[in-house]
Amino acid sequence: MQSEPLVLSKREKRKLAGEYPDLCLTCGTCAGGCPVTGVDGMDMRKAVRMALLGLDQELIDSRFPWICTLCARCEHGCPMSIDLLKMMRSARTHRERDKVPGVLHKGVVQCLKSGNNVGIPKEDYLFLLEDLGVELAEELPGFRVPVDDKGARILVTINSKEPFAEPEDMFFWWKIFYAAKESWTTTSENWEGVNWGLFTGDDESMKEVVRRIVEHYKSLECEYLLLPE
């Protein structure tokens, strides 16, 4: 516990980018409507006070920015329109990468390296798509999974959870495309649609994953991009 008074002027400049926290009226609307108010003795109103008082590092080191699901109900209700999500996500950004909770940062690193969050090799992925395509064709005559089809109307990304653990859940969209006689395609590389940099506050990695998708979109000359997340 802190025994000496906190000397605010000696603390480094505020890191957290929450916009206009000094406008906070301390009304508590944010905290009052939040399901995790009270966890770790924290709530959104306290987080704003911390940012305002220069307790940036304390907030960054706390679990609260990660217990908060960035759902934006508080921000929607805030009478002063304070950018609360930006502040919380920015606290995540400032967390050292090896201290990001759970598998999220590992997934980001894996995605940058292999093109998907769980590291499924290209050959395995293509084998799986073909195998599942043959299975579905028994029910839907002529069905196949289009991969890297140039000129397809819709480019579709894949949630790596599905090829990894729930492959038959990909059938739902495939059946709809078949019924609609849609011209669509997935890609053989960098097909991941789940961008975990959004959650870890990692803008650079997030941009790179998006850049790869846009690159496919342009080179395959697709008209629409669909991220079924």
Binding site: P35, W66, C68, T69, L70, C71, G102, T200
Partner: peptide, 11 residues
């Protein structure tokens, strides 16, 4: 309750 990556977090 699982937004913001909470589904993949240890909490």
């Amino acid at each position: 309750g699982a937004g913001g990556g909470a589904w993949a977090m240890p909490y």
